[in-house]
Computed example of a mutant assay.
Amino acid sequence: MEIVMSVAIGLLLMAAVYLMLSKSLIRIIIGTGLLSHGAHLLLLTMGGLGGTAPPVVADGVTVGDYADPLPQALILTAIVISFAVTSFFLVLAYRAYQELGTDNMELLRGTEDYE
């Protein structure tokens, strides 16, 4: 299962980097969202996908039997932070589009003359 998760993480990160290198501001925001999802899956996979029991230590439960709650807590925190950052980016992009009338990064930089 770790191999499948590793491939999925690689594909998400590859698509995120591709989208973040584009000229459209909306594609860059989608790329950052994909990057955060890849990081969430990476944290979950690094914590281990095994564990059939809930993370409650009781009599007869060994260390390998229960799921580790720390990666789940880190992912929950990361989801909240990535939601806030994505919301901020979307509002910033909308305001920039209202003011400047474009979402092209070259035009926003002012480095090239487009008509």
Rank of each mutant, 00 (worst) to 15 (best):
V61Q: 02
V56H: 02
T86L: 15
L19C: 03
S22R: 15
S87P: 04
S87Y: 12
M5T: 13
D59C: 05
G31Q: 05
F83T: 10
I3C: 13
T62H: 04
D103E: 06
L25S: 07
L100Q: 11
V63L: 01
Q98G: 08
A96D: 08
G31D: 02
R95A: 05
V56G: 00
L19D: 05
G64F: 11
G60W: 08
A96F: 08
T32W: 12
T52V: 03
S36Y: 06
V56Y: 01
A96W: 09
V80E: 07
L12A: 00
L70Y: 12
E99T: 08
L108W: 07
D65A: 14
A53I: 06
R95N: 09
A73H: 00
D68Y: 07
V91C: 00
F83C: 10
L76Q: 06
M5V: 13
A39C: 08
T111W: 13
M1V: 15
I30R: 01
T62K: 09
V61T: 03
M5S: 14
N104A: 09
I81T: 07
G33F: 09
E115T: 09
T86D: 14
D68V: 07
L43K: 10
L100V: 08
V85M: 12
P54W: 05
G51N: 09
L70D: 10
L34V: 02
K23E: 01
S6K: 14
A16I: 06
A84P: 07
L34I: 03
L70F: 05
V4T: 13
I28R: 04
A73C: 04
R109V: 08
L35V: 02
H40I: 15
L49M: 15
T52S: 04
A39N: 07
L49V: 14
A53W: 06
L74T: 09
L70E: 11
K23A: 07
G110A: 09
T62S: 05
G31M: 01
G33A: 13
D65E: 15
K23V: 07
L107S: 08
E115N: 12
L25H: 07
T111Q: 13
L34F: 14
Q98S: 14
A73D: 02
P71L: 05
I26V: 08
S6N: 13
I9M: 06
G110E: 06
T45W: 10
M1K: 10
G51T: 05
V80C: 05
R27P: 00
G64E: 15
A78G: 01
H40A: 15
P55S: 06
L70R: 14
G47Q: 02
T111A: 12
E2G: 15
L19T: 08
E106K: 12
E115L: 10
L12G: 04
H40K: 13
G110Q: 01
G48L: 02
A8S: 15
